[in-house]
Write a protein that binds this DNA or RNA. Structure first.
Lengths: 131, 131
DNA sequence: CTAATTTGTATATTGTATATATACATTATT
DNA sequence: AATAATGTATATATACAATATACAAATTAG
């Protein structure tokens, strides 16, 4: 019922912290480590753990609430919802994300990661998704 | 020798334009559609094609030059280099990119894309990398 | 029933990043 | 030597990110 998700944020990354937090939580959500009924830590608590300001966490929570993952209420906190996935995925968003996948793959090649390793990582992800 | 890479940028995306350009070019580079000896279009030309300011393109070119892909010289332009991939990929960078892959995958699931489609896209990417 | 406490929310401030405008530097060609 | 075609440097406007601070709501304590 009370959930303390494991998150790590990277201050050196170009990705803004609030989005890193949202991304990390979204992974826990889609992968079922956070399930409906769970309560996330209060924004001040998680902010303390991560070493950022509580409004930054609040912004991440609100992003996920906008996506339908959370219900936020004062005094009670952030509740994980039973969420039916959107029936009609937004075309634009999906296209952008797919392109992003191939961009990141190109970055990995550019960084000198052996193709074998890259494709192994991709296949591992593919398996994870199907389970 | 003169190369006119096909690029598309998305002004609605959260990704800054200069990085979108660099990402797109990097894909052409790692996938061999741009090869050593090719000359990219002048910054003003590509900027005109894309509808952005030439300094934005210049910034993208410089990013790729920093990565060792391009040699920039005034009057001659942006030359694609013979680039030996880094022998020791930067651990931090690679970790960040791998995490990014799994974040994007989570975003796709969150957007309601059927797992089958996601894993198919991932496997397709994996195949492309190995070729 | 009221006060205190615990939560999320709203607004303002400050720093940083992005995109552009403009001027400059370099170098090949005429 | 002059011109033209490039990339580069610097300044500025704007938007975004992170924080500080004040507020609002709702549960609990007394």
């Amino acid at each position: 019922m009370a959930a303390a998700p494991r998150l790590s944020i990277d201050l050196a990354s170009v990705a803004p912290v609030y989005r890193q937090i949202a991304n990390g939580l979204r992974q826990h959500l889609v992968e079922g480590r956070l399930t409906p009924g769970d309560l996330l830590p209060p924004v001040r608590q998680l902010a303390l753990d991560l070493g950022v300001h509580f409004n930054t966490v609040a912004l991440a929570y609100r992003s996920l609430a906008d996506e339908g993952w959370l219900d936020l209420r004062r005094r009670r906190g952030a509740l994980v919802l039973e969420r039916d996935t959107p029936v009609a995925p937004q075309r634009d968003l999906v296209d952008r994300l797919l392109r992003r996948l191939s961009e990141v793959t190109a970055e990995l090649r550019s960084a000198g990661v052996p193709p074998r390793k890259i494709s192994a990582a991709l296949r591992r992800l593919a398996e994870g998704v199907e389970s």
